[in-house]
Amino acid sequence: MTIETTGSTEQDPSPGEDAQVGQSALWPADSDANGAFSDRPAVCEFTDTWYSYGGGEPAVEDVSFRVRKGDFAAILGPNGSGKTTLLRLALGLLKPARGSVELFGEASSRFRDWSRVGYVPQRVEGLGIRFPATVEEIVEQGRYRGFDPLAIFRRHGQKEVLDALEVAGISHLRSRPIESLSVGQRQRALIARAIVGRPELLFLDEPVSGVDAVGRDRFHELISSLNREHGMTVFLISHDIGAVMQGATVCACINRTVVFHGAPHHLTGEHLSELYGFPVDVLLHDALHEHR
Protein backbone atom coordinates (compact mmCIF):
# COMPACT_ATOMS: atom_id res chain seq x y z
CA MET A 1 0.00 0.00 0.00
CA THR A 2 1.28 3.43 -0.89
CA ILE A 3 -0.03 6.57 0.71
CA GLU A 4 0.67 10.00 -0.61
CA THR A 5 0.95 12.81 1.80
CA THR A 6 2.31 16.34 1.76
CA GLY A 7 5.09 17.88 3.74
CA SER A 8 8.17 20.00 3.26
CA THR A 9 10.94 17.43 3.25
CA GLU A 10 13.61 20.07 2.68
CA GLN A 11 12.90 22.17 5.69
CA ASP A 12 11.53 19.77 8.24
CA PRO A 13 13.62 17.60 10.49
CA SER A 14 13.97 14.02 9.38
CA PRO A 15 10.77 12.03 9.75
CA GLY A 16 10.37 10.39 13.09
CA GLU A 17 12.88 12.61 14.82
CA ASP A 18 10.48 13.78 17.47
CA ALA A 19 7.47 11.68 16.64
CA GLN A 20 6.22 9.70 19.55
CA VAL A 21 5.25 6.12 19.13
CA GLY A 22 3.04 4.21 21.51
CA GLN A 23 0.77 5.25 24.29
CA SER A 24 3.57 5.78 26.75
CA ALA A 25 5.13 8.65 24.81
CA LEU A 26 2.38 11.18 24.42
CA TRP A 27 2.19 14.92 24.24
CA PRO A 28 4.18 16.04 27.25
CA ALA A 29 2.15 18.39 29.39
CA ASP A 30 4.17 21.46 28.44
CA SER A 31 4.91 20.82 24.79
CA ASP A 32 2.89 20.69 21.63
CA ALA A 33 2.95 18.06 18.91
CA ASN A 34 6.27 19.33 17.56
CA GLY A 35 7.84 18.99 20.92
CA ALA A 36 8.07 22.75 21.29
CA PHE A 37 6.89 24.57 24.36
CA SER A 38 3.30 25.64 24.05
CA ASP A 39 1.16 27.66 26.40
CA ARG A 40 -1.94 27.31 24.24
CA PRO A 41 -4.67 25.83 26.44
CA ALA A 42 -5.95 22.32 25.80
CA VAL A 43 -9.53 22.41 24.49
CA CYS A 44 -9.99 18.63 24.38
CA GLU A 45 -7.98 16.22 26.49
CA PHE A 46 -8.03 12.45 26.88
CA THR A 47 -6.22 11.10 29.94
CA ASP A 48 -5.74 7.32 30.33
CA THR A 49 -9.14 6.84 28.69
CA TRP A 50 -10.70 3.39 28.38
CA TYR A 51 -14.05 2.44 26.93
CA SER A 52 -15.76 -0.81 25.98
CA TYR A 53 -19.23 -1.45 24.58
CA GLY A 54 -21.33 -3.71 26.82
CA GLY A 55 -18.32 -4.70 28.90
CA GLY A 56 -16.66 -6.55 25.97
CA GLU A 57 -13.27 -6.00 24.35
CA PRO A 58 -12.07 -2.43 24.88
CA ALA A 59 -12.88 -0.17 21.92
CA VAL A 60 -10.53 2.46 23.33
CA GLU A 61 -7.56 1.45 25.45
CA ASP A 62 -5.51 3.75 27.64
CA VAL A 63 -5.63 6.70 25.24
CA SER A 64 -4.01 9.97 26.27
CA PHE A 65 -3.62 13.01 24.07
CA ARG A 66 -4.73 16.57 23.93
CA VAL A 67 -5.83 19.02 21.29
CA ARG A 68 -4.75 22.57 21.91
CA LYS A 69 -6.50 25.77 20.92
CA GLY A 70 -5.74 26.55 17.26
CA ASP A 71 -4.74 22.98 16.32
CA PHE A 72 -6.01 21.19 13.25
CA ALA A 73 -5.91 17.69 14.71
CA ALA A 74 -6.41 14.76 12.35
CA ILE A 75 -7.35 11.47 14.00
CA LEU A 76 -6.46 8.60 11.69
CA GLY A 77 -7.01 4.88 11.94
CA PRO A 78 -8.49 1.86 10.18
CA ASN A 79 -12.16 0.89 10.44
CA GLY A 80 -13.08 -0.30 13.93
CA SER A 81 -10.05 1.36 15.48
CA GLY A 82 -12.08 3.38 17.97
CA LYS A 83 -11.89 6.78 16.25
CA THR A 84 -15.63 7.43 16.40
CA THR A 85 -15.75 6.11 19.96
CA LEU A 86 -13.13 8.71 20.89
CA LEU A 87 -15.23 11.42 19.29
CA ARG A 88 -18.39 10.26 21.09
CA LEU A 89 -16.45 10.28 24.36
CA ALA A 90 -15.27 13.82 23.62
CA LEU A 91 -18.84 14.96 22.93
CA GLY A 92 -20.15 13.46 26.16
CA LEU A 93 -22.29 10.96 24.26
CA LEU A 94 -20.38 8.16 26.02
CA LYS A 95 -18.79 8.08 29.45
CA PRO A 96 -15.30 6.62 29.77
CA ALA A 97 -15.05 3.37 31.73
CA ARG A 98 -11.73 4.57 33.13
CA GLY A 99 -9.72 7.74 32.85
CA SER A 100 -11.14 11.08 31.83
CA VAL A 101 -12.15 13.12 28.80
CA GLU A 102 -12.30 16.87 29.16
CA LEU A 103 -13.70 19.64 26.98
CA PHE A 104 -12.41 23.10 27.84
CA GLY A 105 -11.19 21.78 31.18
CA GLU A 106 -14.50 20.21 32.21
CA ALA A 107 -15.51 16.52 32.12
CA SER A 108 -17.24 16.07 28.73
CA SER A 109 -20.19 14.23 30.32
CA ARG A 110 -20.93 17.31 32.44
CA PHE A 111 -20.05 19.90 29.80
CA ARG A 112 -22.93 22.28 29.03
CA ASP A 113 -21.43 25.24 27.16
CA TRP A 114 -22.19 23.73 23.75
CA SER A 115 -22.09 27.08 21.96
CA ARG A 116 -18.29 26.63 21.98
CA VAL A 117 -18.51 23.36 20.07
CA GLY A 118 -19.60 22.48 16.52
CA TYR A 119 -20.11 18.95 15.21
CA VAL A 120 -20.39 17.46 11.72
CA PRO A 121 -21.44 13.79 11.82
CA GLN A 122 -20.78 11.18 9.16
CA ARG A 123 -24.48 10.46 8.77
CA VAL A 124 -27.67 12.06 10.02
CA GLU A 125 -30.49 9.90 11.42
CA GLY A 126 -33.31 12.05 10.07
CA LEU A 127 -32.24 12.07 6.42
CA GLY A 128 -33.64 9.53 3.98
CA ILE A 129 -37.30 9.83 4.99
CA ARG A 130 -38.24 13.11 3.30
CA PHE A 131 -37.09 15.22 6.24
CA PRO A 132 -39.08 18.42 5.74
CA ALA A 133 -36.50 21.16 6.11
CA THR A 134 -34.74 23.63 3.86
CA VAL A 135 -30.98 24.09 4.06
CA GLU A 136 -31.61 27.39 5.82
CA GLU A 137 -33.76 25.72 8.49
CA ILE A 138 -31.05 23.13 9.15
CA VAL A 139 -28.34 25.79 9.45
CA GLU A 140 -30.65 27.77 11.72
CA GLN A 141 -30.65 24.79 14.13
CA GLY A 142 -26.99 25.48 14.84
CA ARG A 143 -27.94 28.78 16.49
CA TYR A 144 -29.82 27.00 19.31
CA ARG A 145 -29.06 28.74 22.58
CA GLY A 146 -31.47 27.10 24.98
CA PHE A 147 -35.22 27.07 25.52
CA ASP A 148 -37.05 29.69 23.45
CA PRO A 149 -40.85 29.41 23.59
CA LEU A 150 -41.20 31.66 20.53
CA ALA A 151 -38.80 29.68 18.32
CA ILE A 152 -41.66 28.49 16.12
CA PHE A 153 -42.39 32.09 15.12
CA ARG A 154 -38.77 33.08 14.37
CA ARG A 155 -37.99 34.03 10.81
CA HIS A 156 -35.03 32.76 8.83
CA GLY A 157 -32.40 34.74 7.02
CA GLN A 158 -30.48 36.21 9.93
CA LYS A 159 -27.07 37.49 9.00
CA GLU A 160 -25.26 34.71 10.88
CA VAL A 161 -27.07 32.05 8.86
CA LEU A 162 -26.32 33.77 5.56
CA ASP A 163 -22.67 34.22 6.57
CA ALA A 164 -22.32 30.54 7.47
CA LEU A 165 -23.90 29.54 4.16
CA GLU A 166 -21.44 31.77 2.32
CA VAL A 167 -18.40 30.41 4.17
CA ALA A 168 -19.58 26.86 3.36
CA GLY A 169 -20.03 27.92 -0.28
CA ILE A 170 -23.73 27.02 -0.52
CA SER A 171 -25.54 30.38 -0.41
CA HIS A 172 -27.32 29.46 -3.64
CA LEU A 173 -28.84 26.35 -2.00
CA ARG A 174 -30.42 28.09 1.00
CA SER A 175 -34.05 27.48 -0.03
CA ARG A 176 -33.55 23.94 -1.30
CA PRO A 177 -34.92 20.97 0.69
CA ILE A 178 -32.04 19.32 2.54
CA GLU A 179 -33.06 15.93 1.13
CA SER A 180 -32.62 17.16 -2.45
CA LEU A 181 -28.89 17.88 -2.04
CA SER A 182 -26.00 15.67 -3.11
CA VAL A 183 -23.88 14.00 -0.40
CA GLY A 184 -21.17 16.66 -0.72
CA GLN A 185 -23.69 19.51 -0.59
CA ARG A 186 -25.33 18.01 2.51
CA GLN A 187 -21.98 17.86 4.26
CA ARG A 188 -21.43 21.53 3.44
CA ALA A 189 -24.87 22.29 4.86
CA LEU A 190 -23.87 20.43 8.03
CA ILE A 191 -20.62 22.42 8.15
CA ALA A 192 -22.66 25.63 7.88
CA ARG A 193 -24.91 24.34 10.68
CA ALA A 194 -21.86 23.57 12.82
CA ILE A 195 -20.13 26.95 12.31
CA VAL A 196 -23.15 29.28 12.38
CA GLY A 197 -22.71 29.82 16.12
CA ARG A 198 -18.98 30.51 15.58
CA PRO A 199 -17.73 27.66 17.78
CA GLU A 200 -14.16 27.52 19.06
CA LEU A 201 -13.84 23.79 18.50
CA LEU A 202 -15.15 21.89 15.49
CA PHE A 203 -15.53 18.08 15.54
CA LEU A 204 -15.90 16.27 12.21
CA ASP A 205 -16.50 12.52 11.89
CA GLU A 206 -15.33 11.29 8.46
CA PRO A 207 -17.26 14.12 6.81
CA VAL A 208 -16.28 13.25 3.24
CA SER A 209 -17.09 9.55 3.06
CA GLY A 210 -19.17 9.10 -0.07
CA VAL A 211 -17.91 12.34 -1.63
CA ASP A 212 -15.92 12.23 -4.90
CA ALA A 213 -12.20 13.14 -5.06
CA VAL A 214 -12.73 16.73 -6.25
CA GLY A 215 -15.41 17.29 -3.62
CA ARG A 216 -13.10 15.85 -0.95
CA ASP A 217 -10.26 18.22 -1.85
CA ARG A 218 -12.55 21.25 -1.80
CA PHE A 219 -14.03 20.11 1.51
CA HIS A 220 -10.59 19.78 3.09
CA GLU A 221 -9.68 23.23 1.78
CA LEU A 222 -12.78 24.57 3.51
CA ILE A 223 -11.82 22.91 6.81
CA SER A 224 -8.26 24.24 6.52
CA SER A 225 -9.51 27.76 5.94
CA LEU A 226 -11.84 27.51 8.96
CA ASN A 227 -8.76 26.59 10.99
CA ARG A 228 -6.35 29.15 9.52
CA GLU A 229 -8.57 32.10 8.74
CA HIS A 230 -11.37 31.75 11.28
CA GLY A 231 -9.20 30.41 14.09
CA MET A 232 -11.32 27.35 14.79
CA THR A 233 -9.68 24.39 16.44
CA VAL A 234 -10.42 21.31 14.34
CA PHE A 235 -10.75 17.69 15.51
CA LEU A 236 -11.14 15.70 12.30
CA ILE A 237 -11.62 11.95 12.10
CA SER A 238 -10.67 10.50 8.76
CA HIS A 239 -9.10 7.57 7.00
CA ASP A 240 -8.13 9.67 3.99
CA ILE A 241 -4.53 10.24 5.08
CA GLY A 242 -3.24 12.10 2.04
CA ALA A 243 -6.02 14.65 1.92
CA VAL A 244 -6.02 15.29 5.66
CA MET A 245 -2.30 15.94 5.76
CA GLN A 246 -2.71 19.00 3.55
CA GLY A 247 -4.20 20.97 6.38
CA ALA A 248 -3.54 19.14 9.64
CA THR A 249 -1.07 20.60 12.09
CA VAL A 250 -1.08 17.61 14.40
CA CYS A 251 -1.99 14.01 13.87
CA ALA A 252 -2.94 11.09 16.11
CA CYS A 253 -3.08 7.57 14.71
CA ILE A 254 -5.41 5.35 16.68
CA ASN A 255 -5.82 1.63 16.70
CA ARG A 256 -7.68 1.23 20.00
CA THR A 257 -4.66 2.91 21.54
CA VAL A 258 -2.39 5.71 20.30
CA VAL A 259 0.02 4.31 17.67
CA PHE A 260 1.52 7.61 16.58
CA HIS A 261 1.14 11.15 17.74
CA GLY A 262 2.94 14.15 16.41
CA ALA A 263 3.32 16.54 13.50
CA PRO A 264 2.00 15.08 10.22
CA HIS A 265 5.35 15.30 8.42
CA HIS A 266 6.82 12.98 11.00
CA LEU A 267 4.38 10.24 10.12
CA THR A 268 6.37 7.42 8.49
CA GLY A 269 5.54 4.21 6.71
CA GLU A 270 6.65 2.42 9.86
CA HIS A 271 3.92 4.11 11.88
CA LEU A 272 1.32 3.44 9.23
CA SER A 273 2.39 -0.20 8.97
CA GLU A 274 1.89 -0.49 12.71
CA LEU A 275 -1.48 1.25 12.37
CA TYR A 276 -2.85 -0.84 9.51
CA GLY A 277 -1.02 -4.09 10.21
CA PHE A 278 0.69 -4.38 6.78
CA PRO A 279 3.60 -2.67 4.99
CA VAL A 280 2.89 0.90 3.86
CA ASP A 281 5.09 3.23 1.81
CA VAL A 282 4.71 6.96 2.23
CA LEU A 283 5.39 9.28 -0.69
CA LEU A 284 6.06 12.73 0.62
CA HIS A 285 5.22 15.53 -1.80
CA ASP A 286 7.16 18.68 -1.25
CA ALA A 287 4.51 21.34 -0.96
CA LEU A 288 7.07 24.00 -1.92
CA HIS A 289 7.93 22.21 -5.15
CA GLU A 290 4.30 21.82 -6.01
CA HIS A 291 3.78 25.52 -5.85
CA ARG A 292 6.76 26.46 -7.97
Binding site: R88, L91, G92, L93, R112, W114, S115, V117, G118, Y119, P121, V124, E125, G126, F131, A133, I138, Q141, G142, Y144, R145, G146, R193, F203
Partner: peptide
Amino acid sequence: QSAFDQDLAHVSG
Protein backbone atom coordinates in the same frame (compact mmCIF):
# COMPACT_ATOMS: atom_id res chain seq x y z
CA GLN B 1 -33.50 19.16 16.51
CA SER B 2 -34.18 15.74 18.09
CA ALA B 3 -36.09 14.61 15.00
CA PHE B 4 -33.16 15.56 12.73
CA ASP B 5 -30.44 13.83 14.73
CA GLN B 6 -30.24 12.99 18.42
CA ASP B 7 -26.44 13.38 18.66
CA LEU B 8 -26.44 16.69 16.79
CA ALA B 9 -29.23 17.89 19.07
CA HIS B 10 -27.15 16.92 22.13
CA VAL B 11 -24.12 18.84 20.83
CA SER B 12 -26.38 21.83 20.13
CA GLY B 13 -27.25 21.83 23.82
